[in-house]
Nucleic acid binder design. Sequence first.
DNA 1: CTGAGGATAGTCT
DNA 2: GACTATCCTCAGA
Length: 223
Amino acid sequence: MAAKHAQQKPSARLYCAGCVVLPPAFYDRDTLRVARDLLGTLLVRQSREGLTSGRIVEVEAYLHENDPACHAARGCTRSNRAMFGPPGRAYVYPIHSRYCLNAVTRERGTASAVLIRAVEPLDGIELMRRRRQRQTQRQLTLRELVRGPARLCEAFAVDRRLDHWDLTRGQRLWIGREATAGWRDEEIGQSGRIGVTAAADLPLRFFVISSPYVSGSRRSRPA
DNA sequence: CTGAGGATAGTCT
DNA sequence: GACTATCCTCAGA
C-alpha cells in the first residue's frame, strides 16, 4: 500500500523515464473509462525551467450529454473550443484568476473531457516548490504543492498557452503510462464532483482512496 | 481537522 | 453586471 506511493528521497533516475506516452486511441473512448484509467498515469511537463512529473490520483469526468456542469453544455464558445476538438488535446480553462487542466476525450462524438484534480509529486519537486512558493511566505508542505487543480497547474506551469496542446506527442506537456501496475478497482473511490453547483450528485469524480494528495475534505471519501 | 468569507480576472449575457 | 470545474486565511472545535 504505502509502497505504491513514492518516497521523498531524491533519485538519480527520473520517475517518468520509462513512461510510454498515451496514444490518441486512449482518449478516444468513453469518458468515464478514460477518467478511471488516467488514475496512476504520469503527468509530465517539460519547460525551459526544467522537468516536473506527478502520478495522477484524482480526476473528474465532464460529459457533454445530460451534464449541465460541463462547459460544453451550452455549446461551443471561444474559451471551450478545445473540448469540441480531437481527443488527446489539453483543455485549459481559466477560473478565479487561475487555471484548470483537462484532457479532451470523445464521448460518442460529442465534447467531453477529464479534469485532472491532483497528482502525487515525483520529479522536479524543488521546481514545483519554487513556482508555488512565489506568493506564500511560509514553507509549503509537499501535499500543498499540487493538491487541487489550480495549484497543480501552477506547480506544472500550465496556463492558457497550453490550451489545445496535443498531449500525445510527448513534448512540453504529456501523459504517460508506467510499466508498474496501477490501482485495483477496490482502491479507487467515486463521488460527486467538487465545486460544481449543477449536477453535483453525479458520481463522476474518481480518486485513489489511500493517497494523501487527493483534494477535498475527508468527508468526500468513503470510510 | 472543518467550514465560512473574501480576493480575483476572464468570459458570457 | 453576474457568473465561476479555486485558493488562502482565519476562527473554532
